[in-house]
Design a protein around this nucleic acid. Sequence first.
RNA 1: GCCGGAGUGGCGGAAUCGGCAUUCGCGACCGACUCAAAAUCGGUUGGGCGCAAGCCCGUGUGGGUUCGAGUCCCACCUCCGGCACCA
Length: 833
Amino acid sequence: MEDRYDFRAVEAKWQGRWEASGLYSRGHDPSRPKFYCLEMFPYPSGNLHMGHVRNYSIGDVVARFYTMNGYNVLHPMGWDAFGLPAENAAIQRGVHPADWTYANIATMRSQLKGLGMSYDWGREFATCDPEYYRWTQWLFLLLYRRGLAYRKKAPVNWCPSCTTVLANEQVIDGACWRCKSQVEKRDLEQWFFRITAYADRLLRDLELLGGWPEKVRVMQQNWIGRSEGVEITFPVEARREGITVFTTRADTVFGVTALVLAPEHPLVEELIAGRGDELAVQVRAFARRLADLGERERTEMEKEGVPTGAYAVNPLSGERVPIWVANYVLMEYGTGAVMVVPAHDQRDLEFARKYGLPVKVVVRPADASLPEGPAGDGLQEAFEDDGVLVNSGPYSGLSSAAAREQIARDVTARGIGRKAVNYRLRDWLISRQRYWGAPIPVVYCDACGIVPVPEERLPVLLPRQVDFTPTGGSPLARNEDFVRTDCPSCGRPARRETDTMDTFMCSSWYYFRFASPRCETAPFDRDEVAYWLPVDQYIGGVEHAVLHLLYSRFFTKVLYDAGLVPFVEPFTNLLTQGMVTLGGAAMSKSRGNIVSPDDIVRRYGADTARLFILFAAPPEKDLEWSDQGVEGCHRFLQRVWRLVTGIVRDFAAPVGGWGGAAGDGTAGTALRRALHRTIKKVGDDIRERFNFNTAISAVMELVNEAYRYRESVPRQEQDGALLRELAEKLTLLLAPFAPHLAEELWEMLGHRESVHLQAWPAYDPAALVAERITIVLQVDGKVRGRLEVEADAPRERLEEAALAHERVRAFTRGREIAQVVVVPGRLVNVVTR
RNA sequence: GCCGGAGUGGCGGAAUCGGCAUUCGCGACCGACUCAAAAUCGGUUGGGCGCAAGCCCGUGUGGGUUCGAGUCCCACCUCCGGCACCA
């Protein structure tokens, strides 16, 4: 057994052969069902990290497993290649972003090949290829035509360090998702996608995504943030126009003791227009001060407000209420104005207490434990639950729910309000003031205004010669050759849009492109997309739950509406894998806790790296790296190698089939049962639960059993046919996890065709059946003995045998037997009184 | 605050339908082989008591249901993740 598995030679040998034979390229095959297995494509940052290895190892097992199970599997790989790091490298090191990016792609491609991933490399592309971004621009135009792309001036998130604006989804806790700098608010004219027009469908269709983790669906649900309520217009004294508020608690409308406007609300300026009094001066100063604050500072400050001196009238109660301006009202949500109900909203209560506004209780719990009406002065905490209305005119006595309905009807009938739905989701800001992205295909003409670039003139090429120095403006604006163009509409001189698109736009449709990556007449061939999509299994990190995954769903619905794709959801099943950690923290350069995949592959081989990463934890959990764990997996593969090569050596030419018979009680029968049990378990674990860790441990057990057999049964009595069967099926079971080792063993076993084209082994149900089994004997729920019986022994026989058992009798002696619970095949529990 | 997930040996984790808690792997200890080491192989390894047979305890805490609970129910604690002046 001195023979050692030379993983370096074997892995290089098969990677070369696979590539030369095109083993993993795929096309249509009407004879087999299709399966699209996709892993989130990487940003080519330079080198693969362990998170990539985990992501792609999981995907590779799934792809290989479904291939062996008879599916025509699409398993492509490409590059999410536009983005800031390339440009930063250019600024810091003087390398052109394109050169930097394509060099990184070359490195990472060879790393992926070194891991033995089964990609159809013929479908590879990078989103920065003009042949790709041409269609990204085409899709922009599609959205523009459909009224879903628009330009507006708005307060937007600005990252001072990246010198560009960001989408809402890219601001995490008030900071830039990429560089963690505090984000500022700036008023800029920018391009948006009207994703809010799809808010309701994006929410509703989450129900179609039974194959997604609950967690991700909930995150999207929270992000979209639908809330139902009513808008009610309060007339303003001495003005024609009123103030419209949005509320989900119309039942508390008789408890309103003020209205509050967001500082940016257009009416604020009007209410104090031409006034020089002290209040007006205060309001102006307040609004200006808040405008200068970042979102973070603003959300963290205490509630603050100033009265405008103006009054409105509650259209339901007829009461006069003061109009205030306050920092806690958001202009971007609802109508930018809210009614203040201190008794029933904690924020309003804090505000009212600070400024001495009245507190008026109008909803009481069913047990009437709150004081009524204006006597709510002692209220410590707002009563925010539903209850029964009091002090509410004609609505008194109604339940909150009934009152909401009635009030909605009444305000609608009187023309002073309506039911309304609001979403937390905001439109997607896609302009970026950076170079390394797809140019927005739009031209500005003095005569014609905004003119989209005609499809036949796409792509709008990103020029190579550009000054990348960050100034806060778009680098493209400094390239006059790029900027100057003719108006596609009137032909007169015009200027190009100089912003580029958010890279999330590129990644929102790449999975369509893989179906027909060289299509030159459209973003994708519709027949190919109809054949391959939707993606059957998508695998990636949970960090994209409300970024990429939301945008992609939006894009798919737009394409569906345009009649270009026949489905409304792009990803049928989603698996979100956990992080790879070291010392309990995510691996990162700044923390200095990186383990390099290259080093691991060099020392132990790709198969070991893949096996460890799949074995150490279930895929959705975080995985703590362990060098010793890696060695354990390496030892296991060496053990497999010695087992199979030993069998091949000892039983080069087996005669006949398996010599035993089920139920003959021999070591051979037991081993064969173990083999078939393992085949069943590994298949179930992969297919039903993605429990690669338990699948692998089952294979380890099988190998242990095989060794025990080989060592305990004399060589001449060993069943050669059984051992050959075991060696072959073991090799097939390992093929998705350790593709190189399996391929080499398969060849040694005498096969000419790749192990990766073989059918997944079927288990023999007859082999699983044991003649005799061990059942547990309990007395009062405690295990007191074991009993070996025929597998099909009936209840009465089990009960009888249990009661006759020496140890059971010892524990029941002198006690009355109250009950005997018999679970055939498992246990007998004797219950005493 | 709201929503989601998780708490099991020294460690990663297993127990898939309410039925032997801790498969498998790592680590540790003992042993075989060896001049020695590496590699490999075998054994032991939740805690306590006991010479032993064996007994008792044990899955975050406290209750409950059940012949039987890591698993189901109630209350709570801790940790992780998401959202958060969203009216």
